[in-house]
């Protein structure tokens, strides 16, 4: 009970900070919007090729802004020297990880939902009940993304080249998440084969469970102040 409360306090602090400034939220949302627009220029707008590629475009637009947010989550603490304070307080490192993970996850899901709305409009899909499946994919994929991403963000937070280093470390590892999310979205929007969609959801869940557990255990080793 105490742990859950501590996790929530840690996560709520980050979310409140973001809610008050809305700095990262607006920047990352705008960045994602730009990616959606750039792809319209890269392909022929309204062509079948672009429609076929739409799921890939959506997840590309979610991926890159996500990395920015992950980098920020430890950067602010470093700059203000507040990480030191948290580490000095009687909180286990694994709870600190959980709190950071929760904040990143909530942030990403919130921003992803907004981007999906923009995506449906730009790509001329329709708002219908089956989008609930995309919501599920977003919840699961951003959980895996935040689990590995929060761990790696903590790892690179002290390195000068962290902005480029984080995606270099993160993207190869989350290849299964990207594949499952893109293909799951393809099943929802274009192909409608529920048995494959279920398979991708299973893969996402397995990835989440494995890497949440691993990150929870090894987080202790990556922060030393």
């Amino acid at each position: 009970m105490r742990s859950l409360k501590l996790i929530w306090i840690l996560a709520e602090k980050d979310l409140r900070l973001e809610y008050r400034s809305r700095q990262a939220f607006l920047t990352t949302f705008f960045f994602a919007l730009l990616i959606l627009v750039v792809f319209q220029f890269a392909f022929d707008p309204g062509s079948t090729a672009l429609r076929e590629a739409a799921p890939g475009v959506l997840w590309t637009a979610l991926l890159f802004p996500g990395v920015i947010q992950l980098n920020r989550s430890f950067q602010l603490e470093k700059e203000e020297g507040t990480l030191h304070g948290i580490l000095l307080s009687p909180v286990e490192r694994s709870l600190l990880f959980s709190g950071k993970f929760l904040a990143n996850w909530v942030f990403l899901v919130a921003i992803d939902l907004l981007i999906v709305v923009a995506f449906v409009i730009f790509f001329n899909f329709s708002f219908e009940a089956k989008l609930a499946w995309i919501l599920l994919l977003i919840l699961l994929a951003s959980a895996g993304f935040s689990a590995v991403g929060t761990l790696f963000a903590a790892m690179v937070s002290g390195i000068r080249t962290r902005e480029v280093l984080l995606p270099i470390l993160l993207f190869p590892i989350i290849v299964p998440t990207i594949l499952a999310a893109v293909n799951g979205t393809q099943e929802v929007l274009l192909r409608h084969q529920p048995q494959f969609l279920v398979r991708w959801i299973q893969l996402l869940s397995a990835f989440d469970i494995i890497f949440l557990a691993v990150a929870f255990i090894v987080f202790d080793y990556v922060l030393d102040e």
């Binding site: 790892m155 299964p176 594949l179 293909n183 494995i210 890497f211 691993v214 080793y221 990556v222």
Partner: peptide, 28 residues
């Protein structure tokens, strides 16, 4: 020490990822 720890963690995670990557790409 910090470098050794971080690299150890990444080496372990990288190897754990191999079977999942294999599965996902085969399904794909």
């Amino acid at each position: 020490e910090k470098k050794f720890k971080l690299c150890a963690v990444f080496g372990i995670i990288g190897f754990l990822d191999v079977p999942i990557v294999w599965m996902s790409i085969r399904w794909w």
